[in-house]
Simulated assay, not measured.
Amino acid sequence: MSAPTDWATKDFYQVLGVKKDASADEIKKAYRKLARDNHPDSNPGNAQAEERFKAISEAYGVIGNAEKRKQYDEQRSLFGQFKGGFPPPGGGGPGGMGGVDFDLGDILGGIFGGGARGGRRRAPQPRRGEDLESEATITFRQSVEGVTLPLRLTSDEPCANCHGTGARPGSVPKVCSKCQGSGMQTGASGGVFAMTEPCSQCRGRGLIVEHPCEVCSGSGRAPSSRTINVKVPAGVKDGQRIKIRGKGGKGDSGAPAGDLFLVVHVEGDERFGRKGDDLTVTVPLPFDDAVLGGEVTAPTIDGSTVKLKVPAGTPNGRTFRARGKGGTKRDGSRGDLLVTVEVEVPGEISDAQRAAVEAYREARVGGVA
C-alpha cells in the first residue's frame, strides 16, 4: 500500500477502468475480472502481471470501500486543480494557502487514523525479511513429476547475539531524541509542503544504539545460513522463476519473512521431449509393420511401457496418442504421450529377406498381383 502522500497523484478509477461515478457493483465487477486476469497464480514468473495485480488490489482497497472512497474523492477534488495533484512549489494553494507551511499528512490523515502532527505518530514498523533468489537444476523426469529439493540459503537475519536489537548483550537501545521514536522527521521542501522523511539521526529505526553488538556492529542483522526443503511443482519449465512465499530472509521483531524466488533449470532427456502438458517420444517401426500393420512398444516417463496398434499403410513420421501417459498437470491429472513412428530401413538383410523385397519390387514395377 502506498504512503498517504502518493494517493493524491494516483487515479484509482483509471487503474480499474471505471468511471468516477461508477456504482459499487461496477467497481467490484471490474476488480474481480482484472484480479483474475493478473493474479500471480495465473501468470507464474510474470513480474509485470504481479505489479498490475498489486496496483489493482490497492485501487480496490480504496474505492471499493465506501468511506475511503468518499475521503479519496474529497482529496482528489482538493488537489485536482494542480497539475500532477500537488500545488506548485512556493505557489498558492486552495483557500489562499500561499506561503503557509503545512504537512500533507494533516489533510490525508483521516484515511489512515491520524496525521503526522494532528495525532500521535505511528511507530516505525519492524523490517520485513529480504527477498532471496536461488537456482536449482533438476532432471527432466523431476520436472514432469515434481520434486522436493533441499536448498542451502544465506541471508542477513536478526542477529543471534543481540536478538536483532543491535545493542550489546546486557544493554538496550535508546529512543531517538530527534524523532521521539517515530523513525521519521519533517523538513522543509522549499515550497508549501513540510515533507516527512526518515530520521537522519536514527536512519528510520526510531532507536539509537550507544553500545553496539560486537557481532552485527549495531545493525541488528548478521549473515546466517540454513537449509530448507522446497517443493518444485510438476510441469515446471526450464528457466521458470517460482515464488515461494515466506521462505526468504527472516523479519525483525515478528515482521513477516521475505519471499524466495527459485529459478529452475531442467536437464534435457535423450528420449523424451515436451509439448505443453504432453510428452513426446520417437520409436522405430519395422518396414513390414508400416506396410501390413502391426504394433509398437513405447517407453513412458515412469519407466513402464505402452503398446500401440499401427494400421496398415502407416507413413513415416505419423504420431499416435497414448492418453494419460504424459506429464502431470497442475490439477493432478496427466497429459498424453505423443508417440511418433520412424520407419526402419534395415542396413543388412538375409537372403530370404532380399528375395522377398525383390519379389515385392518386381510385383510393384511389373504390376503383377
Rank of each mutant, 00 (worst) to 15 (best):
P158C: 06
E210L: 09
D37W: 03
A123L: 15
T5K: 13
A66N: 06
A255M: 05
T9V: 07
F272Q: 10
V341D: 08
E130D: 15
A66P: 06
G113P: 05
D73M: 06
D288H: 12
T280K: 02
G146S: 07
T305S: 15
A116G: 07
T5Y: 14
V215M: 11
A355Y: 08
E270G: 07
R323L: 13
R241H: 04
T5W: 14
R334E: 02
G166L: 10
A359L: 06
G191T: 07
V339E: 06
G293K: 13
E67N: 08
I138L: 09
V296F: 09
R69G: 01
E344F: 00
G218W: 04
L34R: 06
K325P: 00
K174W: 02
G326S: 07
A290M: 07
G98R: 14
Y60W: 05
G327F: 06
G249I: 06
A30C: 04
G367E: 06
G183S: 05
C213I: 04
A47F: 10
A369M: 12
A47P: 10
Q75V: 11
K70I: 02
G118F: 12
L337Q: 12
R120A: 15
S57D: 11
S2H: 09
S182K: 09
A255R: 01
T154D: 03
A356C: 02
K54T: 11
G80K: 14
A369L: 14
K243E: 14
L285G: 03
N46I: 00
A356K: 15
K29I: 05
D277A: 02
A222H: 13
V263S: 13
V236F: 04
I111A: 13
A234L: 05
S189D: 06
V147M: 03
R122Y: 04
G85K: 06
L308D: 02
S350P: 09
Q75G: 10
D101N: 13
D106N: 14
V266I: 04
V368R: 15
S304Y: 01
C159I: 12
V345Y: 01
V310Q: 05
A369V: 14
G146L: 00
P94V: 15
M97C: 10
A257M: 01
K28Y: 10
V62K: 03
K54Y: 02
A359G: 13
T297C: 03
G98K: 15
L338T: 12
L149S: 08
G95I: 05
F320K: 06
R32N: 15
V175H: 01
E67M: 02
V296W: 08
A160S: 12
E210Y: 00
R330Q: 13
D277K: 13
V291F: 02
G206K: 05
V281A: 07
G303I: 09
F86E: 08
T297Q: 14
A257P: 03
R334G: 11
D37H: 02
G84Y: 08
G85T: 09
G187L: 12
R361T: 08
I27R: 02
G276C: 07
S225F: 00
G332K: 13
T196P: 02
A35N: 08
S134C: 00
K243I: 12
A234W: 04
L104Q: 10
G146R: 10
A359Y: 00
V263H: 11
L260G: 01
A59T: 06
G248F: 04
V230Y: 09
G246I: 01
R361L: 15
E210S: 12
K10F: 05
R226Y: 03
V144R: 10
G235Q: 12
A298M: 08
C179K: 02
